[in-house]
Amino acid sequence: MSEQAYNFAYLDEQTKRMIRRAILKGLAIPGYQVPFASREMPMPYGWGTGGVQVSAATLTPDDVFKVIDQGADDTTNAVSIRKFFEKTADVKTTTNTKAASVIQTRHRIPEDELGDDQILVYQVPIPEPLRFLEPRETETRKMHALEEYGLMHVKLYEDISKNGRIATSYAYPVKVEDRYVMDPSPIPKFDNPKMEMSAIQLFGAGREQRIYALPPYTKVVSLDFEDHPFDPSRAPHCCSICGASDSYLDEVIINDDGGRMFVCSDTDYCERRVAEGHTGVQVSGDAA
């Protein structure tokens, strides 16, 4: 494959314009899923083709691009997507959240607060929050159009009646500007409150051919009941590397006896804290 044979950021200009129109429509109707003619990309559907197309349509030669998967810059899929844009768009890339102008993510929102000069692009596998309650696209689109969201609360009701609490821990549905119920992509519910931010948030679902968006400072409310309010909880531990007590943690199994420790899922955040002199309490295998 000769990279020169392809346009800047892989997609041809007409396709990018088509995607930009969908993005603008999405920004104009926050939370509404805009159908778009998703293209076959050179990576499989389900591996971030929606996010990649949105990034391709968003990137300019001056942008600084960061890709994370599970919060980390070094996971294989993040590496693969970063390399793809290095190759096809020749943009500068970074792992530093604060230095990036466009951040593509799978499953996390960075711990550092994003600014109004940044764009966060989410990879979305199933954009339809009602999908597992109603499998038909024709029906779910009607439910959105008519604001028929009773069924969504039935699901939460069932959770509480069965488990005593809402048993949804990621891809926790939100209501945008009191209108559309939206799937925030499979981020942990810990990240939901961060969605009211000053950066632009764009969501791309390639296989399902949908783009949606949140303009800066959009009202995003996680669905709940008055007497069972939304709870963005996390594991009750500190990061063993940097000691952070406010970050989302990955659990790492460290020996055959099931000993485990917790570390920041956002690797850039963790590394910066270590550079700033923070330390965590390293747990030795046998003590865990």
Binding site: E148, Y149, G150, L151, H153, V154, Y157, I160, D224, F225, E226, D227, H228
Partner: peptide, 11 residues
């Protein structure tokens, strides 16, 4: 369900 469909939000 019908209660929630018309806006009841208190479990």
């Amino acid at each position: 369900e019908r209660l929630m469909a018309v806006g009841s939000r208190n479990y």
